[in-house]
Every structure is written in structure tokens, then in C-alpha cells.
């Protein structure tokens, strides 16, 4: 067994004149939570659709659970669970019936199916809702049912396309907890896409940043942040600051006096630099009143790599429109 659950090499997808993917490559290790982070229209959903075998790439290679997605789509389909961005439940069936139908289509035998439905309903805490028509469920509940359904056939790999898009903070945290638990207790590999950087940062072991159909960086959140290579420490003090001494420290890059009697110290490794800085102040007998420290966010990383914000006005607008459309369909 390969140690990679997903291998993507140089994937291209063209829709007429539009190139949705322009050479996407990344690998997902077995058992990790991997995030595709990028703005709307970056190619996240297209990538998910190719990996889940419902569209074909124009060129390139993708392997999921050890099988080529173009040559052996059925082998891939058996081993994956998918939660698409838009709801794909049958709204006119009950929660139980949706799960039952899924189980039958995936060939789970009757007794086993009933047991597993109880299990997944327990997991997503919707047992009392099992006989309600799905159309009467809230957006967050529908998403939870979809997660339950995707888990019913015990997939090796779970795909989640924008799992918390448009959900309230409570539902969002619930879904994050399920995702963490799945990885921990069931050892499922999870590939999720998101344009929320908190989500990527909170959940993912590793992240690939995607922009305009290309992966611009891949690594753990910390690794990605270190691409920028600088963090900022603010020190509020009483007296004369030991600026020359500070500048001699190994990790310090820049020292600047700013408003409010504060020193702005640019460092390349804050955890290592901080104790040294405090020691210098201590030795120089300058009293420190306050220390604060700004880590670069994934948004800073995105700006650094692409020159644009992860969430632009335009994308917020698009998202707004999408939410309206979605509400129309769902209610």
C-alpha cells in the first residue's frame, strides 16, 4: 500500500476557452486532513469533481486510493465518500430514507445497513430527526446528514467541498469536531476545500494554496507561514530601549521605534527570538510593560504569494449571490 491516498500530477481542465485548472499537482498522505485553500473560482471544486470521478480531466494524472480516476472510476467510487458543495440529498425523502437509498446503491446488506444507519445518525447527533423529511431540516443539519451518508459505506477517503459554507458558527464548530473525530477514531483520510483561512488553519495537517488553477504552495500551516519568513514582536517599555543590542541578536531582522512608546521588532522565528529579546531588556535594566506578537496569517501568505487578498470584495459578492441561489433551492 502506498503511503499516499491521493496523488495529483499536472492536472489540466479546460471548459471551452476557460482553463479551470492549469497544472495542479499535490499529494495527500494516508490518514491526514488535507486542505485546498483558495478564493472562489480558483479551481477547488473542479479538482474535487475530477478526483471524485464525475468529470474527466483534459490532461494530467490523478490517483485516488491507488486507482487512476480516469481508468478505474468504479474502484475509486467504492473507496470514497463525497460531500459536495451543494446539497445532494433527496429533499422529499426522510433522513432515514436518504441513508437507506445510499446504502442500497452501495450494496450494503439489510441488517448491516440498519446498524450502520443508527451508527452514523448517532455520530452526527440527529437520531431524533431520522423520520423527518430532509426539506424541513436546517442547512447545518442537511450538511450533517450528507456527512453521515458519505460515511455509510466506510470510505477510505472523505471529500468535503466547502463543508461549512454558509453555516452558522455553531454548525461550523460541530462539523469541525466531526472531521477531527473521524480522523482520530476512524483513521479516514480527508480532503477538504475551503476559502476560510481559519478553517484551513484549525483543521488541516497540510494545506495546498490554489489560485487561478494552480497550486502556489503546499505544506503545513506553520511551513506555509514560514514562507513569508518574518514575524513581528511589539514591546512596550519604560526607559531607553537597547536597540543596538537587539540588532545583534540572531533572529532579529529589523528594530523600529513606533508610536505609543513601542518597539516593533521584525524576527524570522518568534518562538526562538522572544526569550532572547526579553533577556536583552532584562540585562539593560529596561522594564517591559507589555509584549505582543503578530504571526502571519494564511491570508498574509496568500497575499505574499499572489499579490491579492484571499477574500476580495468580488468574491464576497459572488458568495452572497451563491447563498441566495442556494437558499432558493433548499427551502
Amino acid at each position: 500500500m502506498s503511503s499516499y491516498s491521493i496523488v495529483v500530477k499536472d492536472l489540466y481542465k479546460r471548459y471551452g476557452d476557460i482553463e479551470a485548472l492549469r497544472g495542479v499537482s499535490f499529494t495527500v498522505r494516508r490518514g491526514e486532513i488535507f486542505g485546498l485553500l483558495g478564493p472562489n473560482g480558483a479551481g477547488k471544486t473542479t479538482t474535487i469533481h475530477i478526483l471524485t470521478t464525475i468529470i474527466r480531466p483534459t490532461s494530467g494524472y490523478a490517483e485516488v486510493a491507488g486507482f487512476d480516476v480516469v481508468k478505474y472510476p468504479d474502484e475509486v467510487r467504492k473507496r470514497i465518500g463525497v460531500v459536495f458543495q451543494d446539497i445532494t440529498l433527496d429533499l422529499n425523502l426522510t433522513v432515514y430514507e436518504n441513508l437507506w437509498l445510499h446504502g442500497k446503491i452501495y450494496g450494503i446488506p439489510g441488517n448491516e445497513l440498519r446498524r450502520r444507519i443508527d451508527e452514523v445518525l448517532e455520530l452526527i447527533e440527529l437520531k431524533e430527526w431520522r423520520d423527518k423529511l430532509v426539506k424541513y431540516l436546517s442547512g447545518g443539519m442537511k450538511r450533517r446528514v450528507e456527512i453521515a451518508r458519505a460515511l455509510l459505506h466506510k470510505p477510505e477517503i472523505l471529500f468535503l467541498d466547502e463543508p461549512t459554507l454558509g453555516l452558522d458558527p455553531n454548525s461550523r464548530v460541530k462539523i469541525w469536531n466531526y472531521v477531527r473525530m473521524l480522523r482520530k477514531e476512524h483513521n479516514i483520510t480527508i480532503l477538504l476545500t475551503t476559502h476560510y483561512m481559519e478553517e484551513a488553519e484549525q483543521l488541516c495537517d497540510r494545506i495546498a494554496i490554489i489560485d487561478r488553477g494552480k497550486i502556489v504552495a503546499e505544506g503545513s500551516p506553520d511551513e506555509l507561514k514560514s514562507i513569508i519568513g518574518r514575524e513581528i514582536i511589539y514591546v512596550k517599555f519604560v526607559g531607553t530601549p537597547p536597540v543596538p543590542l537587539l540588532k545583534t541578536l540572531e533572529h532579529v531582522r529589523e528594530v523600529k521605534l513606533i508610536e505609543g512608546g513601542k518597539l516593533e521588532i521584525v524576527v524570522d522565528n518568534a518562538p526562538k527570538a522572544l526569550p532572547e529579546i526579553i533577556e536583552v531588556f532584562h540585562k539593560s535594566n529596561v522594564q517591559i510593560e507589555e509584549v505582543s506578537y503578530k504571526r502571519p496569517t494564511l491570508n498574509d501568505v496568500f497575499v505574499y504569494l499572489t499579490g491579492r487578498e484571499l477574500r476580495e470584495e468580488e468574491s464576497n459578492f459572488n458568495e452572497h449571490i451563491r447563498m441566495i441561489m442556494r437558499k432558493r433551492y433548499l427551502t
Binding site: 464525475i54 470514497i80 463525497v82 440529498l89 452501495y106 450494496g107 433551492y329
Partner: peptide, 19 residues
């Protein structure tokens, strides 16, 4: 197709002829 359920069917390993 419009309500998304088609995707659930298309991503399933069951032969589409049976569906």
C-alpha cells in the same frame, strides 16, 4: 440535476444502467 441528487448517483459505484 438541479437539486443535486444526480451527483449522489453519479459518484456511486453502482452501474448506471441499473440506476
Amino acid at each position: 440535476r438541479q437539486f443535486g441528487f444526480l451527483k449522489e448517483v453519479l459518484v456511486a459505484p453502482a452501474p448506471r444502467t441499473f440506476i
